[in-house]
């Protein structure tokens, strides 16, 4: 009899304990889940806060007459609000990115094709190099562009030097995007081409690349739209000029470059103008990447 009583006691004790642990476990789980919710909220706050500031302070700047069409002015103590516009930076940014694209897009895409199609040792080595170069700090591209274009090629501080820095920065990104796009093409496409007797190069050019083109093009657009906002690679080599310039050998300004200069000035009016430039940059990147994604998604639907 005593044994049964003990059993019951133990059972009761265990039940109490398990209820207690269950309560504790549920409580901890609830708290940690709430913290996860807090984390995702916290992650979204900066985006909302930045966009709010961009709209609130940026819109009054860009609606100012002549913001896009006039050259920047240096404010003076007599005319502290005379900041002028950003026409030279706008032209400079376009020129820098166009020259960078002319250099980087063909090489990056061809290299991506090689990475996707080759199984050689060199290809796997190159894949490691590419992944490592994607993580290289962008200021180093500025140092590299200075050494190669400004010093060794004797071009001087110029648009083309900035383009070179940006091109080296986006090359591995373009190659990776191309590689992924080609790998996403079903292998049956390639096998069908080969089965019909086409040469591997013909199959690649006429069947695989067209099928991958949507992914490649949207990859290019995304990479280039991000590159427009990069400051560090061009900061050391573009020279900074107060005139409109688009010739490769000329020194120029660019939108992120001018932001970086203006925000460090002592004039509140110049600091304030950076919100306008920021709005233009962020707006352009958002619209372009949104359009590229939408376009890619629609093309995909049509292909299926």
């Amino acid at each position: 009899m005593t044994v049964t009583i003990k059993d019951a006691e133990i059972r009761e004790h265990l039940r109490e304990r398990s209820v207690a642990t269950l309560r504790r476990r549920t409580y901890i789980s609830g708290v940690m889940t709430a913290l996860c919710w807090l984390a995702i909220t916290f992650a979204a706050v900066p985006l909302v806060a930045v966009i709010y500031q961009l709209l609130r302070r940026g819109i009054p700047v860009i609606v100012k007459s002549g913001f896009f069409t006039t050259l920047p002015q240096q404010p003076t103590i007599f005319d502290a609000n005379n900041t002028g516009g950003v026409s030279n930076a706008l032209v400079g940014s376009l020129a820098v990115i166009v020259y960078a694209a002319l250099f980087a897009v063909p090489i990056g895409v061809l290299m991506g094709v090689y990475l996707a199609e080759s199984t050689s040792k060199f290809a796997s080595l190159l894949r490691i190099i590419t992944a490592t170069m994607v993580g290289a700090p962008s200021i180093l591209m500025g140092l590299f562009a200075f050494e190669v274009v400004v010093q060794q090629m004797h071009v001087g501080f110029s648009i083309i030097a900035g383009s070179f820095g940006l091109a080296v920065l986006v090359l591995p990104v373009l190659a990776t995007a191309t590689e992924i796009a080609i790998r996403n093409v079903p292998s049956t496409y390639r096998e069908a081409g080969l089965a019909l007797g086409a040469k591997p190069s013909t199959t690649s050019l006429k069947i695989v690349l067209p099928a991958a083109s949507t992914g490649i093009v949207s990859g290019i657009i995304l990479a280039l739209s991000r590159a427009v906002g990069e400051t560090a690679p061009i900061l050391l080599v573009i020279g900074g000029a107060y005139a409109i310039a688009w010739h490769p050998n000329q020194a120029a300004s660019a939108l992120p470059f001018q932001m970086f200069q203006d925000v460090q000035s002592n004039y509140p009016s110049l600091q304030n103008e950076t919100w306008g430039i920021a709005l233009v940059l962020v707006g352009a990147v958002f619209i372009i990447s949104f359009a590229a994604r939408l376009w890619a998604a629609r093309k995909k639907k049509v292909q299926r």
Partner: peptide, 24 residues
């Protein structure tokens, strides 16, 4: 939607974060 929102953080140029951090 949530994943895209976080990705959008990466689309904002670093100089914009710098300006935001400095002025706000």
């Amino acid at each position: 939607i949530a994943a895209t929102t976080v990705e959008l953080l990466a689309a904002i140029p670093s100089v914009v974060y710098g300006v935001w951090g400095m002025l706000v």
